[in-house]
Structure formats: structure tokens, C-alpha cells
Design a binder for these strands. Sequence first.
DNA 1: TAGTCATGTGACCGACAAGTCATACGACTG
DNA 2: CAGTCGTATGACTTGTCGGTCACATGACTA
Lengths: 224, 224
Amino acid sequence: MPKQTFLNLPDEKRQTVVNAAIDEFAEYGFESASINRIVANSGISKGSFYQYFDDKMDVFKYLMDVIAQEKTEFFKGKHPPSPGLGIFGYFRWMIKTGMEFNSTNPKLVKAIARVLLGEGMYYGQIFNDVRKKTMDTLVTMIQHAKQNGEIDPSVDEKVAATVMDTWSNVISNSILQEGMQKKDIVKWVRTPKTQKYIDDMLSIMEHGLRNVKASSIDDAGKEE
Amino acid sequence: MPKQTFLNLPDEKRQTVVNAAIDEFAEYGFESASINRIVANSGISKGSFYQYFDDKMDVFKYLMDVIAQEKTEFFKGKHPPSPGLGIFGYFRWMIKTGMEFNSTNPKLVKAIARVLLGEGMYYGQIFNDVRKKTMDTLVTMIQHAKQNGEIDPSVDEKVAATVMDTWSNVISNSILQEGMQKKDIVKWVRTPKTQKYIDDMLSIMEHGLRNVKASSIDDAGKEE
DNA sequence: TAGTCATGTGACCGACAAGTCATACGACTG
DNA sequence: CAGTCGTATGACTTGTCGGTCACATGACTA
């Protein structure tokens, strides 16, 4: 947690520091991020930094808190689709709304994602909690969907959750990666082409790659 | 490329250096890997290291060469399944045979994967070639599979290739991650449970998550 | 024997890292 | 006025990094 000193700061200065930290993590990841560069780019002194935060991890955790809070705020103003759409409709809504959110602060999202999905995998406990939480949510969703007959009851719930989580990350990342090079990322995300890409990916997740119409004949009994 | 000096080394010494490098990359990734630690752990002097390799990237590229060569060698001794099994059968065989290979040198595979899938994403050109090559292979496979009516012709080929590549990585990684904690990884990979996990994942890739039998009724026309 | 050449060595260099601390400044307080 | 409290500062310590280089060793050669 950042110390009180930091929270007392005038908004503008605080934001400058936060922005410098975001830039640093987005560019270098966690391990290679340099506090020296952060203080240089935000125009504060080294001593001040250590009066604001304990260490590098402390700033990063603060950024995670910020994004979590902003996300909650953002999703509050949105209404989920009618429950009749089921898990796939809900998931699609989540991804698309999530992308709208990501567009509002793409660099921060990219920074967090880079650390969590990259180095985070090898950092043990610290980041695992986040991962576990989303996995648990997904498993619950899947259990409901199974009861509604929406998801094949024979697929393992944990496996399905992994699939959905992976999917979500792959989509977000690729969209963010490309979108950050556009002038107006919000507009670009809303583009029919981008929306179609999301739909295509989710459709594959839902129905698979196989061509059901043509393959049902020569398939039977052939696979091991 | 490592210099001749390194290739002239007695096998045992050379292997010691290679092993130290593998351990280092597997544990710390590329950016944070330390040449100082590598030389300390392999019992050679700093000067010797720089008589063997140009720099850190040079060692790493050498490891990539080693693994590429070993993999080619390994796959030479295996026969692919009959072409009648189609792309999904072939892909499954590839994954499973790949996992057999991975088990023969898990740490090296893990080290390479960690760098390629982690930092590699942000390193530009250098590692992109590898990625592009596998993507091209996949796209070609998919084009064939479309002609055979195996893959839904409406799905974008690039999207499908991304899906298969992602899948392959997710499966390999999760299996390797868990398998490395077992006493006998080769035996564990051949376990019915592990094999079932692979089959389950690939089956979802092929058929999707949706329960086709139950959902066809209440679905029609509801989705946006 | 003297010379040469491939190989090995680790002290040393400059760069940069994280983190500390004596000092300074200004606002408020008694 | 003196005192003190929150905040700001950057030189400094300690440590690691990648990389270099003058020198050592030992085998082979003329």
C-alpha cells in the first residue's frame, strides 16, 4: 500500500507519478522496470519515491488496485444482457464491455496484463490469487451453464474454465496490441471489423473449428 | 553462434556450461538471466565464457538451435498417423508426440518456452521469425483442411491458426509445469489421466464448449 | 631450447540498480 | 520568536551487471 504521504499529494502530481509508473511497466515489464527511470520521468526525487511507496512491488500493487477499482466503477454503469442469452451471450458481453473499458486506459491495462501473464506466471503466490479468483468465478458460471444444458456436461469444469480464461486473455491482448497503434482506439474497437474478430474468436470457442456439416460422414469410427 | 573454442571443448565440460545456461534461463527468463551466475555455476571463468559466446543472446540462440535439432531428430523416428485421420488427428498426434519429446528434456523446453512466450512477445524481430514460421505452417494445414471439408470454411484462416497455436502452447505449458514436479515425467505424461487431459482440450478446440444436443432448441433466434 | 598459439583466468571497468540518510525548506504552533 | 512536523532532496552506499584485458598455462613446433 502506498503511504499516506502519497495520497496527500495534489492530484496532478500524483497522476504524474502514476503515469510514469504505468509507462515504465508497460515498456519493461516488472522485473526490468527501473525505479530510477520512474522518478526521473515523473520529476520527483528518489527520496520522495520511497516516502510514497515501499518498493517496486508496492507501486505495482497500487496500479492493480487502481485498475480493479476503475473496472468495478465502469461495469457498474453497464447492464448485463438478459439472462436468457445464457453463458455464451454473457461471456461475449463481458469481453466486449471489457474491451470498451480497456480502451479507456489501454496503457495501464497493457502494463498489468504484461506483468500478470508474463513474469507473473513464475512469481508464485503474489499473483496467483488474482488468477484463482477469476478461475473460481468461471467455474461457477460453467456449473450453472451445465445445469441449463448449455455446456457439454462431459467436459471437465476446470478445463472449460481454463479455455474461457485463455480465450479472454488472447482476445484482449491481441486487440489491445493492435488497437494501441490506432489514433482513436475507442472508435477502432467499435469498428465492425474488430467486433467481428471478437465474434469469430468466441464463435470458435463455442462451436469449435470442425466443420460439422461436411465432416459428419467420413468421420465416424475413424478417430482412435 | 558459439565460437569454435566452445565446440572444441570436451563433451563433459561443454555439457556443464549448457546445463548451467539452461538452469539460468529456466529460472530467470532471458532479461534477468545473469552471465555471472552461469559462469559461477558451470565452474568456468568469465573470460572463458566470452571466448565461447558473444553474449547472452548468443548462448540463448545456441540453446534454440540445440532444441530444434533434437526435436527434428526425435520426430524422425516417429511415424505420423495415417493421413485419413485428417487435421485434427494429425494435430493430436503432433501434440502428444511433442509432449513425449518435451519430457526428454523438460527444463530446456521450459526455458525456451518461457523466453519465447514471455519476454519474446516484446522483443520484436528476433523471435518473431520463429512465431511466423509455425503460423505459416498452420495456415497451410488449415487451407488443406478446408478443402477436405474438415474445417468450417467460414472461419478466418489466420484466426484458426492463432487458435491452434494458442492451444498447442497452453497444453504444452500446463503439462510441462505440472509434469516437472513429478518424479518420472515421461511416465506421468503417458498416464491415462494426462492423455485424457490433452484429449479433452483438443476435443474442445475441435467441437467447442457448447452442448450441441441440448441447446439447439432454446437457442434459435435468441442471440443478437 | 625458444617461440608460438589456443585456451584459461579473474581483477578490473563503467553503468546502473535499489535503497538510505543528513540536510533543507516552509507552514503551522505555542 | 523558537520549535517541530510533514515533505522534498540527491549524494551516497552497496551490490550486480555485462564486458574487457593483461597475463598465465601448457601443448605442440621449428
